[in-house]
Nucleic acid binder design. Structure first.
Lengths: 279, 279
DNA sequence: TTGACTCATGACTGACCGGTCAGTTATTAT
DNA sequence: ATAATAACTGACCGGTCAGTCATGAGTCAA
């Protein structure tokens, strides 16, 4: 990733967090970076493309740091504390902006964004499960969904104070404080409230794709091609026919998809198909 | 409040929650209501005026219900549970949207919105303090900020599950579950982490106004008047001069402000000055 | 020196948005 | 039945924004 891209991502994320995505113009972003508007479009396909990159940039950063906890050689308790420290450090500045964006279910970009979001959630959830089981033993297994929901909530509560009041809190102390509270909560547990399946399933949160939607997309692209002998056109036709059958043959679809790879027109469709087949 | 106003407010709040304020056009709102765009402006001064009304509508609803807890004749524990029940019932659908808007520090409306928001927060905080002290005794006094932050976080965590997964959870059970967890947390408390003043002070959250900002506003309005003999122009000039001195005389400013009351041009400035003098 | 190439620019365009208003329709009063 | 008033409409306007593109500036090999 080039320096300029990083510069834009970091400046933009500040502005998005401060003013919101829609309310921030590309001009404002480029002004803040000291570059021209045209130059922006050398680095990013669109404003939405930038948004996706912002998510990728901070998301992978966070996932990497959380993933690295496993390699720390220390006590389970310290590891658990470290998990909170990382959250406070990394998410603090961007959580509001991330939360804000989560609600905007408009653009095609959000499809990819939801995927990334789910990947992050999943990673955080798995890590938390691991850390909790290591620290408190298998006995708490049934309580994991509740514990995680509550801990995430508590974390969020303190993040809001850090962000909103711009108060410099001692993050290490805070992490240790939260782990102590976790001790208390766990010692008092009786019956769990949440069942595992009530917790947001990471697969299910993504918008599910219907065959109807795919067929409509295919028809639209076919109309744009208009040459019935075109390789892409034929491939699309075959995929469409296959989708219409109730028990479509996945290999037929994935095979035909290989003919679409280079066409920019079908970029979005291919992405949808991949997600559709992998669900 | 007329039926149409309520219709618009409720439809709009759904759209705002789904897509965000900026991303939702007035046309979309009126389409959803089955009325014309022009008709919208018979009920609301502007799109921002609508936003304020949405806040007022749900805010007062919530404040009323929370305020009514005190009149319930039951045990402190049941009252405390009821507090959560109300939150889950009322906030659930709108909390995300409310949180989302809190970050958009753009418009003049937000000034008023912040006031309402602070009123709500304050009410919720005071009520919680009361309920907690009644249930657990004065001993927890020093821990109140932490407890409230954590409980708000936990509440939010479960709200997210309700909202995001559209799962029908038993709210009464959930409230009771949370109160039990509160028992555990409180029984294990040692040293508080947050000090009272670190919790968001309800006055302080409003954006502070600088003299520089005011002077800039004044100069801008003066340029728009251009008649140096105009009463408003002279008043603005005097206020500007007064603000430039380090120990400005408040009476001079408030006196001059009375000359500005009727001018639409100075509406925003007057509001800022009032907040500035009252801080 | 030249010309081919890359990178950067900002004026420009078409779409859209908030808000207005002249005109139409519905309702009530006479 | 008619006049008066209120409620409503949608075409329209000024303005903003995302995205484009003709132009220019800098670089370097020939």
């Amino acid at each position: 990733m080039s320096d300029k891209k990083i510069l834009i991502i970091e400046k933009a994320s500040e502005l998005f967090a401060k003013k919101g995505f829609e309310a921030t113009s590309v001009q404002e972003i480029t002004d803040a970076c000291g570059i021209s508007k045209g130059s922006f479009y050398l680095s990013f396909k669109s404003k939405e493309g930038l948004l996706l990159s912002v998510f990728e940039y901070f998301g992978t950063k966070l996932i990497d740091r959380i993933g690295a906890i496993h390699h720390m050689e220390t006590t389970p308790r310290k590891r658990f504390e470290q998990f909170f420290v990382i959250q406070f450090e990394e998410i603090a500045r961007y959580s509001d902006f991330i939360l804000m964006q989560m609600r905007e279910q408009t653009s095609p970009v959000n499809e990819e964004m939801l995927d990334l979001m789910n990947k992050m959630r999943k990673k955080a959830y798995e890590t938390m499960e691991n850390l909790l089981l290591n620290l408190y033993g298998e006995g708490i297994h049934n309580h994991l969904p509740d514990i995680i929901v509550m801990l995430n909530g508590i974390t969020h509560g303190y993040i809001e104070i850090i962000v909103f009041n711009k108060k410099k809190l001692n993050i290490a102390d805070l992490a240790s404080y939260i782990v102590e509270r976790t001790d208390s909560i766990i010692s008092g547990l009786t019956e769990p409230f949440l069942k595992k399946e009530q917790l947001l399933s990471f697969e299910g949160t993504a918008i599910s794709i219907t065959t109807e939607e795919l067929i409509k997309d295919i028809e639209m692209i076919k109309r744009q091609i208009n040459d019935t002998e075109d390789e892409v056109f034929i491939s699309l036709d075959v995929i469409g026919q296959e989708l219409l059958t109730l028990d479509f043959r996945k290999p037929v679809i994935s095979g035909m998809m290989s003919n679409l790879d280079n066409s920019e027109l079908t970029e979005g469709l291919v992405r949808k198909l991949v997600r559709f087949l992998n669900r």
